[in-house]
Amino acid sequence: MTDVTTKTENPEDFAFTAENMGAAKAVIAKYPDGWQASAVMPLLDIAQRQNGGHLTQAAMDHIARVLDMPNIRVYEVATFYTMYNHKPIGKHHVQVCTNLPCWLRGSDEIMETCHKFLGLDNHESSEDGIFTLTEVECLGACVNAPMMQVGDDYYEDLDADSTLAILSELKAGKTPKTGSQIRRVSCEPVTGLTSLEEQAELRKAKVGGD
């Protein structure tokens, strides 16, 4: 849910760090002169990362200045996309997909596990600031459903146990294995290749996996 009206002006100022400004300039350079506003989405992402996971009004205003566009146009984009957060989020943003393919493959169970283990409802953050749980729409990994995204990483082919294991490791400060949680390479059939077998080794080298 987006916060569509805010009364409090964020007093804190925001400015890109030198490094992020460089990254922003590189993005802006991709677009023709006068069309710098096209860079708004990558810049919002850079700002969100710099800000520790969420956007503030100050950050959006800063981007509007950098891109020479009206503030409101930045607000519109930032409230439209669910990947931009407008409230502080935990260190690990757990986003569970519940759209049709994931749901058919048991996303209810994944969601339930998260609820129970984290003790959080949808859109809630834990008090220690480690976890935020969000139910999201399709993240485009239907082939390995059910799945969830934590931070920038996808965890696929989940069940209650693997979900629990991932969350426990995260809680313990470890880095769980990303990708498919069963013995699947990328998004190949679990039961082994049915075609192009002669290129299996080459593909393995490319996409990783064991």
């Binding site: 849910m1 987006t2 569509v4 009206t5 805010t6 009364k7 002006e9 009004q57 503030n71 409101i72 146009r73 607000y75 519109e76 409230t79 439209f80 996309y81």
Partner: peptide, 17 residues
């Protein structure tokens, strides 16, 4: 003025009131 949010949650407003 702008359209904030999306879909059913779209609201017309100034964002910062």
């Amino acid at each position: 003025l702008g359209a904030m949010g999306r879909g059913e949650n779209t609201e017309i407003g100034t964002y910062v009131e």
